[in-house]
Design a binder for these strands. Structure first.
Length: 850
RNA sequence: GCCGAUGUGGCGGAAUGGUAGACGCAACGGACUUAAAAUCCGUUGGGCCGUAAUUGGCCCGUGCCGGUUCGAGUCCGGCCAUCGGCACCA
């Protein structure tokens, strides 16, 4: 034939063949209710991958790990009679395409189209059973029209604290609706990245650097669009309880939301009628409060600083403002701060205490001011020592640790109102005491910040907003989509003004009104894509009511039944999407308050050298190469056989070869090579009954594979199929029916080879026609698994000493007698006292002697 | 610093509190072959005893120390290491 090494089986022919058949017959299209082919009796199953950003580099082996797992589940559920929604799309707005455009001048839409084509062909080569009729792209105007529409719903809503939900802004009775909208404009200290020329969300800043590119980020006040996610903090927290997610991910979200309960206390400022409100989780330590510290940017600073302290304060503030996030977060450095010259009155002690400013107090958390309790807070103690401020111990530890610097719970001392109480009791009592006197109240704070929602970039969704006379105003629904202008120069301006501002024509909405020139962050499109998949071609609505109700589960549990993706989205996408879902749910557009019922995180795949895959290390594995060499089925099976999905694990070329050998053995079980080097059906295949041991193995395999798919243990499912195949190598005759059943089990994992072999069997034997995927998943017969005889382990004092064969039905007494009579046991027990004999039926006998 | 996950052969990994190491890789030996590849068969945690050789027998072994239990990779307590998250959040 040719000089190529002969393939162990012709995957290079059968894989494209079956992919073409699936596409032509649209076998994996899931009909919506009411559509042709929809069967209302079928239960639905929605299994979703986190859709990728189509980068120029194409897929690496990490992407298809989760995709393969979901594909196996999707195919399995179809075989079990579910109507399965298994879609794929493109999260295509974002920085890389734009950076590329800046370098080359090529429009990001062109880059995106090319990358999408590449990704799609790679995914198709792996044989994923996506319903490509539902493909979506976040950069498509027919898609982002609805992203903009959802923004308008958010903009036109407010959070009603009385009903604890989002409501149309028309129900708001106050005077300034703009102050309560869920989307609002604010001057905020933002994370400005000069290199990228844009602001970033807190979640996008890692160690003071941009998550994308790793460029330095500095604080800078700017006018920005914000989404009021903090209003939903409590519901985002509570909602987690009901979700079938990994506990670790729930915890990450809980920590990110960062709820803490305590009190707000007002401190009167001496010689003024102003007061400073502080938040504390330890109101029981109020008697130990010997100073106040304000964040340098706190608005009261201007009002209270004395003449002689102004120069020092001004200088300190300027220095703090110049600091990058990284510098400010640097814990190893010493505490800094400046005295304002002003004093406050501690409401518990009535003592006069100094007011300082220091950058260890953050404007954005609590009230931006704290009461310094140096005796029971590490940071306050450090600060007090540095600046020689008084320290008063007010909590006595119950153990023998020193009271000074004790931050745990103990007994209140030096605190007349609460002396002798435990910290928990003291908190309650002092809070009530403060409340009675109008000096404070219970309060809850969250670390969660409102979501900074605007970016100074070109390649994102424009806001459906115009400005007139300095005020913002929403566009009408009929004006959507707002399409960005064509531009020759995508570069950030460097001033913080978005690139869209360069489109002088475009920004003129009317004589008086100008368009908003910021764009939305990349997360916008991914916040609701799972909803669009339910009804991707609807041009009347973002998702049709009936389709949403059906696929998202309506009043039944479900939503997205299974969602698989990486942990990197634990607090970004997964929190934002839950937020949008809740807003749309409150406004009556959706049937469920939570989108993703079950979440599974796949672990990352390391390079063969056990290091993270990266271009610089040169250890990236390309799926195309693997498929060229071993075929898509081997690629799929190896990805699953490597180990538990959730775990981090290294790639192994040898491992792929092992799995490829398994599939080749499956092939040769049913097909043999004739003299001419052609594959033909094995003569060993006969329409006979399986032997009893074969029956048993078959049913054990059905059981194991079924249970393992249900529990996501896909690696051990493959092991079991290997055991099955190994048992049939070198047998004289192979029963047809057992092979057919096996091919169905194999189908979700290796769809091409199982389809081909199924078809060949049908052709030869003239029955069971149709695609293997059109048949149904086999049931196992528990009765066939029962053994007549079992091996019983005999232990003495827990140590294995003998094994005997016993009938399955042997009674405890029989087992005991047989065990004690066994030749290996008798001499060891002779002359000793048998204290006890533990019998575990069908398993073991443990003789306890002394 | 706080929180979380993980720790089992040469390697990836299996094990409802009940035979540790399934399955695969690698290695070694054999069959087939002129030869190689491919394929098939066998051995393979460590140490020791026994025997001409086999069958066999014993001890140790799931990061470390302790506990619960007839019995612990698995449960409990304390440590160590690696990875991940958060990090002046009052």
């Amino acid at each position: 034939m040719n000089s190529d090494r002969r393939k162990p089986y012709p995957f290079d022919q059968i894989e494209p063949k079956w992919q073409a058949i699936w596409e032509e017959r649209q076998l994996f299209h899931a009909p919506n209710p009411g559509e042709k082919g929809s069967d209302p009796a079928k239960p639905k199953f929605y299994v979703l991958d986190m859709f990728p950003y189509p980068s120029g580099a194409g897929l690496h082996v990490g992407h298809p790990e989760g995709y393969t797992a979901t594909d196996i589940v999707a195919r399995y559920k179809r075989l079990r009679g579910f109507n399965v929604l298994h879609p794929m799309g493109w999260d295509a707005f974002g920085l890389p395409a734009e950076q590329y455009a800046i370098k080359t001048g090529q429009h990001p839409a062109i880059t995106t189209r090319e990358n999408v084509a590449k990704f799609k062909s790679q995914l198709k080569r792996i044989g994923f059973s996506y319903d490509w009729q539902r493909e979506i792209n976040t950069t498509d105007p027919t898609y982002y029209k609805w992203t903009q529409w959802i923004f308008l719903q958010i903009y036109n809503s407010w959070f009603n604290p009385e009903t604890n939900r989002a409501e149309p802004i028309s129900t708001y009775r106050g005077t300034d609706p703009d102050s309560v909208r869920l989307a609002y404009v604010a001057d905020v200290a933002v994370n400005w990245c000069p290199e990228l020329g844009t602001v970033l969300a807190n979640e996008e800043v890692v160690d003071g650097k941009s998550e994308v590119g790793g460029f330095p980020v500095v604080r800078r006040p700017m006018r920005q669009w914000m989404l009021r996610i903090t209003a939903f903090a409590e519901r985002l927290l509570e909602g987690l309880d009901e979700l079938d997610w990994p506990e670790g991910i729930k915890l990450l979200q809980r920590n990110w939301i960062g709820r803490s309960q305590g009190a707000e206390i007002d401190f009167k400022i001496e010689n003024t009628d102003q007061q400073i409100r502080v938040f504390t989780t330890r109101p029981d330590t109020v008697y130990g409060g010997t100073f106040l510290v304000l964040a340098p940017e706190h608005s009261l600073v201007d009002l209270i600083v004395t003449e002689e302290q102004w120069p020092a304060v001004r200088e300190y503030r300027e220095r703090a403002a110049r600091k990058s996030e990284l510098e400010r977060a640097d814990l190893s450095k010493e505490k800094t701060g400046v005295f304002t010259g002003a004093y406050a009155i501690n409401p518990a002690t009535n003592n006069k205490i100094p007011i300082w400013i220091a950058d260890y107090v953050l404007l954005g958390y609590g009230t931006g001011a704290i009461g310094g309790v140096p005796a029971h807070d590490e940071r306050d103690l450090e600060f007090a020592k540095k600046f020689d401020l008084p320290i008063v111990v007010v909590v006595q530890p119950t153990g023998d640790e020193p009271a000074l610097g004790f931050t745990g719970e103990g007994i209140a001392i030096n605190s007349p109102v609460i002396n002798g109480l435990t910290s928990a009791e003291a908190k309650k009592k002092i809070t009530a005491w403060l409340e009675e006197r109008g000096l404070g109240k219970r309060a809850i704070n969250y670390k969660l910040r409102d979501w900074l929602f605007s970016r100074q970039r070109y390649w994102g969704e424009p806001f459906p907003i115009v400005w007139e006379n300095g005020k913002h105003r929403a566009l009408q629904e009929k004006e959507l989509p707002v399409v960005p202008p064509p531009l020759d120069d995508y570069k950030p301006t460097g001033t913080g003004e978005p690139p869209l501002a360069k489109a002088k024509e475009w920004i003129r909405y009317s004589d008086k009104a100008m368009r908003e020139t910021n764009t939305m962050p990349q997360w916008a499109g991914s916040c609701w894509y799972y909803l669009r998949f339910c009804d991707p071609h609807n041009d009347e609505r973002f998702v049709g009511q009936e389709a949403e109700h059906y696929w998202m589960g309506g009043d039944k549990p479900g939503g997205v039944d299974l969602y698989v993706g990486g942990t990197e989205h634990a607090v970004l996408h997964l929190l934002y999407a839950r937020f949008w879902q809740k807003v749309l749910f409150d406004l009556g557009y959706l049937s469920k308050p939570e989108p993703f019922q079950r979440l599974v995180n796949q672990g990352i795949i390391l390079g063969e050298d056990n290091q993270k895959m990266s271009k610089s290390r040169g250890n990236i594995v390309n799926p195309d190469d693997v498929i060229d060499q071993h075929g898509a089925d081997a690629f799929r099976c190896y990805e699953m056989f490597m180990g538990p999905l959730e775990q981090m694990k290294p790639w192994s070329t040898r491992g792929v070869e092992g799995v490829a050998r398994f599939l080749a053995r499956v092939w040769r079980l049913l097909r043999t090579e004739n003299q001419a080097g052609e594959w033909e059906l094995s003569k060993k295949i006969k329409a006979i009954d399986a032997t009893k041991p074969q029956q048993k193995l078959l049913h054990a395999t059905i059981k194991k594979v079924t249970e393992d798919i249900e529990s996501f243990s896909l690696n051990t499912a493959i092991s079991q199929m290997m055991i099955f195949v190994n048992a049939f190598t070198n047998v004289e005759t192979i029963p047809l029916s057992a092979m057919r059943t096996f091919l169905i089990l194999l189908n979700p994992f290796a769809p091409h080879i199982s389809s081909e072999l199924w078809e060949r069997l049908s052709a030869e034997f003239g029955d069971a026609r149709g695609d293997v995927s059109q048949h149904s998943w086999p049931a196992y017969d528990e009765r066939l698994l029962i053994e007549d005889e079992v091996e019983i382990v005999i232990q003495i004092n827990g140590k294995l000493r003998d094994r005997i064969k016993m009938p399955i039905a042997a009674t405890e007494e029989e087992l005991k007698t047989a065990a004690l009579a066994s030749p290996n046991i008798q001499p060891r027990v002779a002359g000793k006292t048998v204290r006890n004999v533990i019998v575990v039926p069908k398993r073991l006998v443990n003789v306890v002697v002394t």
